[in-house]
Computed example of a mutant assay.
Amino acid sequence: MCYQVVERFSVCGCLYFQHAVDPCEAYGQRGHVVQEKVVLVGYTCDKHSARRAGNVPRSNNWSDSSYSSKDF
């Protein structure tokens, strides 16, 4: 089975990056399906970010995981 990794923002679901297909022997044959594997990254894209709209004070420090750069 062929796989394709697709990275999407975790909140809005917008596309971050779409990787090339990792083909199997049946790639390109009629009726063959490419299985998409979604990896959630970041928080929101620029289009859906509340910060860009100016609705959130700059003092908020949102993180996309339980770790922040200050922990390292």
Score class of each variant (00 low, 15 high):
E36M: 07
G28Q: 09
R58W: 08
N61L: 12
G31R: 14
D71M: 08
P23F: 01
F9I: 02
R52G: 04
D64F: 05
F72W: 06
E7L: 08
V21G: 00
Q29P: 04
V41C: 11
H19T: 03
V33P: 02
Q35D: 07
T44P: 00
D22P: 00
D64P: 03
P57I: 04
W62P: 07
D46W: 03
F17V: 06
C45R: 01
G54H: 04
L40H: 11
V33Q: 14
V38I: 15
L15M: 09
Y67L: 12
P23T: 06
Y3I: 08
D22F: 01
L40Y: 06
F72N: 12
V11N: 00
V21R: 01
W62G: 10
V56I: 11
G54F: 04
Y27W: 09
P23Y: 01
S69M: 07
D22N: 05
C14W: 04
L40W: 10
V21D: 01
N61Y: 10
N60H: 07
H19D: 09
E7V: 01
R51Q: 12
V38E: 08
S59I: 15
S65K: 11
Y16T: 03
C2Y: 00
S65P: 04
Y3A: 08
G13E: 02
E25D: 12
S69G: 07
N61P: 00
V56F: 02
R8W: 00
A26E: 13
W62Y: 15
G13D: 02
Y67G: 04
S10L: 03
D46P: 03
S65L: 11
A53P: 00
R52Y: 06
R58I: 03
P57V: 03
V11W: 01
N61E: 10
N61I: 11
Y3D: 11
S66T: 11
Y67Q: 09
S10Y: 03
A50H: 05
F17N: 13
N60W: 15
V33I: 14
Y43Q: 08
K47T: 15
V34P: 02
S63K: 09
A20S: 09
H48E: 10
R51E: 13
E36G: 02
F9T: 00
S63L: 13
V6A: 07
E25S: 14
S65N: 13
Y16E: 06
D64E: 14
D64Q: 06
L15P: 01
G31H: 12
T44W: 03
Q29E: 15
Q18D: 07
S10R: 06
V21S: 01
N61W: 11
E7H: 10
G13T: 00
P23E: 03
